[in-house]
Design a protein around this nucleic acid. Structure first.
Length: 577
RNA sequence: GCACCCAUAGCUCAGCUGGAUAGAGCGUUGCCCUCCGAAGGCAAAGGUCGCACGUUCGAAUCGUGCUGGGUGCGCCA
């Protein structure tokens, strides 16, 4: 039950009726007609801008149109009052029974309340995390993982057909560095002194890899030239790193559907095929790039390279796909990988990148636009930095010592639920402060706690109730007994949920869910506390029927909180401890 | 030099793809528990929405130009 879409339909029907009566011309574009709750509750329950939007194309005065719509809308039993206000707004007041019925609908739909079909089964691929397989995931990756997974859950709830995908960067020089680093740990495991040279990965997490290598290969690879062990150890170490990353993701309650390998693109002709496709479109050529202005690399010299004409699709300069030594740049397999996603039949691609990859957005979009002939849109969400705080001070990590704050560090200290919620309390393109002390604080300025507390209170009421609180029983209760304004206000908030899901999904913005839940919790706490002064507003009453109606409202709130937390990937708690 | 992101109350941030008098939390001030959990609630004060033009019936939101901060800019991914 989505009240907003129901009422919008009502408005468009009224417009059609006016057209039929010759009061409005045919062929009007109704896309801009909105039906929304007004910011100020004094303006009624719902408002539409229809008269103002249609005034110009219809060649009529807004008020004239508004009067015509008002006359027709007021005939509907769901609408108790219509008034024309301001420059031509149409303010609607709705029958209380509508809100009461909504509570019943929430209860009977349960986990499906708010589910939407706007995605229309569109096949969307969300690529996220894609951390290099050279070490454990750190906090920087964590936010991307949370945002990507929450977005996946959100889009699935809104009717998209979602695939979560991880692109393993196992084809570049960094995995050779990993192999050399692991080799030193392998020597160490065999009782030799490791030589962790500058540029190798010094982290302790490679020590068990060295030991595992010793178990598998004994001493067979010792004192051999690099060319004899590099590939073996590299593959071994990458497998171990990916196993570790999967565990990290699992600790955060994130599960990928597909892992794609960069290395698997090499030697299969896939890169060549993708570039051939571009060449056929006259988007690949040999040329020389201008040096970047203002910050010329010291060893810069003009050089002819194979270039992708990304400027044809909105980029600022053309981009090289081949290095001067004839090897592919990282961009070439990236093009092939995105081409592969297009070929697999996705209708929509989403990439979640760290903000430091902001410079690659335009070229990636250019490549996808070219390779899909403009069919497949690519949305790239850039995830800004997470600043860690502890004891009121910035919590620094030391790259030099090879120590950094890992995803595990964070999850072990505060838990996956808190980590996820906090990471979603800011839009992705704004930097986020993550304060170890504050996120565990049990007070209302901690949104995680505040929302969970509301849910715990609801469950507390359910436990204390002496009436049957089964959802279907509650849905069948006489909800017309919910007629206090404070109760109707909460029901109105519940009515917003399906619309909010659609807005958040359309914009690929899961953080909106977190903010809505905070507002919903606030409304609930407000109603709860009014029970202190007005006993008639308490949930548990003498009369069983009244109690069921009131608990129905509380339980409906709990349903929405659970559904919302489900999208965020956070487990609702039933009791605070 | 260029590109992208950000700029909203003293602080941290929302703002529903352009709507009516711009909203929360913290902090400040004043209230509310013989309580279904006060781990909470109510109220007040607090704003040139960075600046300037423009589009529009209507701009925090869209466009252009500035200012300030962040990120990035061939042979690293």
């Amino acid at each position: 039950m989505n009240l907003f879409s129901e009422l919008r339909t009502l408005v468009t029907e009224a417009i059609a009726a006016m057209q039929a009566a010759g009061e409005l011309p045919e062929g009007l574009d109704l896309a801009a007609v909105a039906v929304e709750p007004p910011r100020d509750a004094a303006h009624g329950d719902m408002a539409t801008n229809a008269a103002m939007v249609l005034a110009k194309p219809a060649g009529k005065q807004p008020r004239q149109i508004a009067e015509g719509l008002a006359a027709r809308l007021s005939a509907d039993p769901r609408i108790t009052a219509v008034e024309v206000a301001g420059p031509g707004f149409l303010n609607l007041r709705l029958d209380k029974a509508l809100w009461q019925r909504l509570v019943a609908a929430v209860l009977s739909q349960g986990g499906d309340y708010g589910r939407s079909a706007i995605g229309a089964g569109t096949r969307v691929n969300i690529e996220f995390v894609s951390a290099n397989p050279t070490g454990p995931m750190h906090v920087g990756h964590t936010r991307g993982a949370v945002v990507g997974d929450a977005l996946a859950r959100l889009l699935a709830f809104a009717g998209w057909n979602v695939t979560r995908e991880y692109y393993i960067n196992d084809g570049g020089a960094q995995v050779d560095v990993l192999a050399r680093s692991a080799y030193e740990r392998y020597r160490e495991a065999n009782g030799l002194e490791p030589a962790i040279a500058e540029g190798l990965y010094p982290g302790d997490y490679l020590i068990p890899v060295g030991e595992a290598l010793k178990e598998t290969y004994g001493t067979a690879l010792l004192d051999k030239p690099e060319s004899e062990w590099l590939v073996t150890i590299r593959d071994f170490a990458v497998r171990r790193m990916m196993a570790m990353i999967r565990e990290d993701l699992a600790a955060l309650n994130v599960k990928m559907d597909v892992y794609s390998s960069e290395k698997a693109l090499y030697g299969t002709g896939k890169i060549e095929a993708a570039l051939e496709r571009l060449r056929g479109l006259d988007l690949i050529y040999e040329g020389v790039l201008e040096p970047p202005k203002g910050k010329t690399p010291e060893d810069w010299e003009p050089r002819e390279q194979t270039l992708f004409r990304s400027t044809a699709h909105g980029d600022d300069v053309d981009r090289p796909v081949m290095k001067s030594d004839g090897a592919w740049t990282y961009f070439a397999p990236d093009i092939a990988y995105h081409f592969d996603k297009v070929e697999r039949g996705f209708d929509e691609l989403i990439d979640i990148f760290g903000a430091d990859h902001g410079g690659y957005v335009k070229r990636m979009k250019a490549a996808v636009a070219a390779l899909s002939g403009g069919r497949v849109p690519l949305d790239i969400k850039l995830i800004q930095l997470v600043k860690l705080w502890k004891n009121g001070e910035p919590f620094k990590m030391s790259k030099r010592a090879g120590t950094f704050v890992t995803l595990r560090d964070v999850v072990e200290q505060v838990g996956a639920d808190v980590t996820r919620f906090v990471m979603l309390t800011r839009k992705n393109d704004a930097a986020l402060d993550f304060d170890f002390d504050k996120v565990l604080e049990q007070s209302k300025d901690n949104p995680v706690f505040y929302v969970q507390y509301a849910n715990a209170r609801i469950n507390s009421v359910l436990r204390k109730a002496t009436v049957d609180v089964d959802d279907l029983t509650l849905a069948g209760a006489d909800l017309s007994l919910l007629d206090h304004d404070a109760e109707i206000t909460l029901a109105k908030k519940l009515a917003e949920w399906p619309r909010l899901v659609e807005i958040a999904a359309r914009n690929n913005e899961p953080h909106r869910i977190a903010f809505y839940l905070y507002e919903l919790a606030s409304d609930f706490h407000g109603l709860w506390n009014r029970g202190n002064d007005e006993p008639s507003l308490r949930f548990v009453q003498e009369d069983a029927g009244i109690t069921q109606a009131k608990i129905g409202l509380a339980r409906a709130t709990g349903v929405v909180i659970s559904n919302g937390l489900g999208i965020l990937g956070v487990t609702p708690v039933e009791e605070m401890r």
